[in-house]
Design a protein around this nucleic acid. Structure first.
Lengths: 145, 145
DNA sequence: GTAAACCTTCACGTCGACGTTCAGGCAAGC
DNA sequence: GCTTGCCTGAACGTCGACGTGAAGGTTTAC
């Protein structure tokens, strides 16, 4: 299959495929006329790249998976180098999740304190939200886009 | 105080302060010689910006807080517009956390499956990690930077 | 008197993964 | 024979947010 067909089957562009090739990620045999020629294995490699990119992997991080597939493995992620990338990404993700969770807690605390202070600031202002009082049901009060 | 001193006291650079001013975020009075002149209120506003930026707020999102401080409030986050930003950021954060958590689950599943497949792939290969067997203690097997 | 600090404006850099456009030129299919 | 697809390759744009750098000039401080 030629580059246009591969692009169409994978839902991408010829430009992207040539770019991957320039990065040494995807290889193409050449037909007698110089056209790039791809087979089903190439499509599988490309799909592997796309899946990982959807996961948020950088292009370079997909390389071990592609190499793994190219070495004849039935899946790109069973090789040690691929597993190592998985583990690293998981560790990064956990680290990041921890940071975001801590930030979420901080922000929540800040908001609660600010709401309290805002309520106390104007004596006739809105009551603090600590108790369910007479104001309407629990939909948002602010509608900023 | 002049721009250099303010920068030093806040741990930033004069370039950044001029940049904030160019965005209309920080204002400076001018001395007779044209030099920018700042007071403690300006420092508080700057600190507010820095705190929020540390939280991951975009520069523009700090504007309501700065305006709030400038209006004479003792804290930048008690004004309705500031509270609205807090709430929006919290909602964004929760959404993002949800996505990352889902991704984490997916990746974890992928890793587990790949580890199983990798173990089964080579009959004499490493045993799956489901049981603690005889291999050495639980440090990393891969050392990719 | 000289070095440091300040002033202005414009333009450039950072980052990744492409997209876009240009220019020229061959190949394929109907 | 004409459109569409493919080739090389180069070079520049995009996106967003946040500055950074340079050039060229004035003021202050020691």
């Amino acid at each position: 299959m030629r580059i246009g067909e591969l692009a169409k089957r994978a839902g991408t562009t010829t430009r992207t495929l040539r770019y991957y090739e320039s990065r040494g990620l995807l290889r193409a045999r050449r037909a007698a006329n110089g056209y790039r020629s791809y087979d089903e294995d190439d499509l599988r490699q490309l799909r592997q790249i796309q899946t990982l990119r959807d996961f948020g992997f950088e292009l370079e991080e997909t390389r071990p998976f592609v190499d793994c597939l190219r070495s004849g493995e039935p899946a790109g992620d069973v090789c040690p180098a691929s597993l190592a990338v998985y583990r690293r990404k998981l560790a990064e993700l956990d680290d990041y999740l921890g940071q975001l969770t801590a930030l979420r807690a901080t922000l929540g605390t800040q908001l609660a304190a600010a709401e309290l202070a805002a309520g106390a600031r104007v004596p006739g202002g809105p009551a603090p939200r600590c108790e369910l009082t007479h104001h309407d049901h629990d939909h948002d009060e602010e509608h900023l886009s």
